[in-house]
Measured scan of single mutants.
Amino acid sequence: VSEWTEYKTADGKTYYYNNRTWESTWEKPQ
């Protein structure tokens, strides 16, 4: 699942961004 990158927002929430599909999600990808 290497295309997903984990980021943190300014208020400390974690989200995930897909470099291949430009998708972002709050849930941890499978």
Rank of each mutant, 00 (worst) to 15 (best):
V1Q: 15
V1W: 14
V1F: 15
V1Y: 15
V1G: 12
V1L: 12
V1D: 14
S2G: 14
S2T: 13
S2L: 11
S2A: 10
S2P: 11
S2V: 08
S2Y: 14
E3R: 00
E3C: 08
E3G: 09
E3M: 07
E3W: 02
E3D: 14
W4V: 03
W4F: 06
W4T: 03
T5C: 13
T5R: 11
T5V: 12
T5G: 05
T5P: 00
T5N: 06
E6N: 00
E6R: 01
E6P: 03
E6Q: 12
E6K: 04
E6A: 11
E6D: 02
E6H: 03
E6M: 05
Y7V: 13
Y7K: 14
Y7N: 10
Y7L: 09
Y7S: 02
Y7A: 10
Y7Q: 08
K8G: 01
K8Y: 13
K8T: 14
K8R: 09
K8F: 11
K8S: 10
T9M: 05
T9V: 04
T9I: 00
T9K: 03
T9Q: 08
T9G: 06
A10H: 13
A10R: 10
A10E: 13
A10P: 10
A10Y: 02
A10D: 13
D11S: 04
D11W: 05
D11N: 08
D11T: 06
D11L: 07
D11Y: 06
D11V: 02
G12K: 03
G12H: 03
G12N: 02
G12P: 01
K13C: 10
K13H: 11
K13G: 09
K13P: 00
K13M: 11
T14M: 01
T14W: 04
T14G: 03
T14Q: 07
T14L: 07
T14C: 12
Y15N: 02
Y15R: 03
Y15S: 05
Y15V: 01
Y15F: 14
Y15T: 00
Y15D: 07
Y16A: 02
Y16G: 00
Y17V: 15
Y17P: 01
Y17H: 12
N18K: 01
N18L: 03
N18E: 06
N18W: 02
N18P: 08
N18T: 03
N19L: 00
N19E: 12
N19S: 07
N19P: 05
N19Q: 10
R20F: 15
R20S: 11
R20D: 15
R20A: 14
R20W: 15
R20P: 12
R20Q: 15
T21L: 08
T21H: 02
T21G: 06
T21D: 07
T21I: 05
T21E: 07
T21P: 01
T21A: 04
W22G: 15
W22Y: 14
W22H: 15
W22V: 02
W22P: 04
W22F: 14
W22N: 15
E23R: 01
E23L: 04
E23D: 10
E23M: 01
E23Y: 05
E23V: 06
E23W: 04
E23S: 05
S24E: 11
S24V: 15
S24P: 07
S24K: 13
S24D: 01
S24G: 13
T25H: 05
T25G: 04
T25N: 08
T25W: 07
T25F: 12
W26F: 07
W26M: 13
W26R: 00
W26T: 14
W26Y: 13
E27Y: 09
E27D: 12
E27I: 11
K28P: 15
K28F: 13
K28T: 11
K28M: 10
P29H: 05
P29E: 08
P29N: 05
P29A: 00
Q30N: 11
Q30C: 14
Q30S: 09
Q30H: 12
Q30V: 14
